[in-house]
Simulated assay, not measured.
Amino acid sequence: MSDAFVSRSLDEVRFWSRIMKEHSLFLRLGFRCEDTQLINEANQFYAIFEAIENRANSLQLDTDPQVIIRFNIEFHTAVSHIWAFKRKVLGLILTCQLPGANNFPLLVDHVSREANYFRNRLQELEPLPDAIIDENVFFLRIMADHAKFISHLLDPSERKLVDQANQFSHDFDQLLFQARDIESMRPQSQTVPILDQFLDQNRVSVKSLRDFKQTARDLIAACRIKSIIHPLLADHVFREAERFLFIIDMFEQHLTGTPVSPRDLEH
């Protein structure tokens, strides 16, 4: 149990500390030049999460669990602080105190939801049926948001890619509605056949979106399409789709006892 706790903690902190670090950068890039206080705060958070990421990468699986517990508390505190910063920024945007800034309100809400998700994840271990539904509700909304951001940040002249992004937005909105229907029907909906089909259906759609994001990321990196998407943001949303696929795969194994082939995550 101690080994599993250390392994899970390090995996979560390594992934999410990088995500929080990059959120700090994306927010900073969206502020106006005169927003020096907000820029400084974002830079401070970037440094905090970079240090946490580096420390997490230096820790080994044989680390004393008590050390990991203290590390998790430190990370939880940092995530709580960046969550508060993100909500403050959202309030400033919605009250028109940052006119001309380039952070969408939905994007700021999106990154704050991710911060809140992770700090809760460090504290809570749900029963498997609840976890399957709750994690999918969370990540399906994240994927739907990503599609919307991609659509709005591509140059309007990239009509085919914009259409594809809009279709993904619609598809994931529908999947999210379905997930919320299953959520409202529990515990009666928490049968193995229903949850297994739920995971299978979501996996197919997430793989398609993951592949689209990978293509967009590679085209942006090669300067082959027109957009205002930062290359790191393109890679960021790709990694989150990969993470969702990993979680679906993990749930499938725990639910049915049948390992999912790594080939299922390939193109």
Rank of each mutant, 00 (worst) to 15 (best):
R159E: 14
A165I: 07
K86E: 15
L38A: 06
R87A: 06
K148L: 12
F71P: 02
S151D: 10
A84L: 12
D145C: 05
A147R: 05
S9W: 07
I133H: 02
W16R: 05
L29E: 15
I229Y: 03
A115G: 07
D196H: 13
K148C: 00
V79H: 02
C33D: 12
L265V: 01
Q44A: 15
K21L: 14
D64A: 07
H23A: 04
F85Y: 15
G91Y: 07
A4Q: 14
A115C: 15
P65K: 07
P156T: 05
K88V: 00
F238K: 02
A241K: 01
H110V: 04
I229E: 05
R217N: 08
K160Y: 09
L140I: 03
R14K: 14
F172A: 04
E158A: 04
H152S: 11
S208H: 10
S205R: 14
E22P: 00
V204R: 15
D62Q: 13
L122V: 04
V204M: 11
E252V: 03
I182W: 01
L176E: 13
Q123E: 12
R119W: 05
R32F: 00
D155L: 01
L90H: 13
L38Q: 08
P231V: 10
L25H: 10
L154E: 06
N103M: 15
R203Y: 14
L59Y: 11
E135D: 14
D163V: 03
L176P: 00
S189I: 08
H254C: 02
A241L: 02
T63A: 14
E53R: 13
P129I: 07
L107T: 12
F15M: 03
N54S: 11
P262C: 04
M1F: 09
G91T: 08
P65F: 06
S169G: 04
A78Q: 10
Q253D: 06
T77S: 09
L219S: 10
P231Q: 08
G91Q: 07
S261L: 08
I73A: 13
A165S: 14
R119E: 11
A179P: 03
V260P: 01
A222D: 14
D3C: 00
E12P: 00
V111H: 09
D163Y: 05
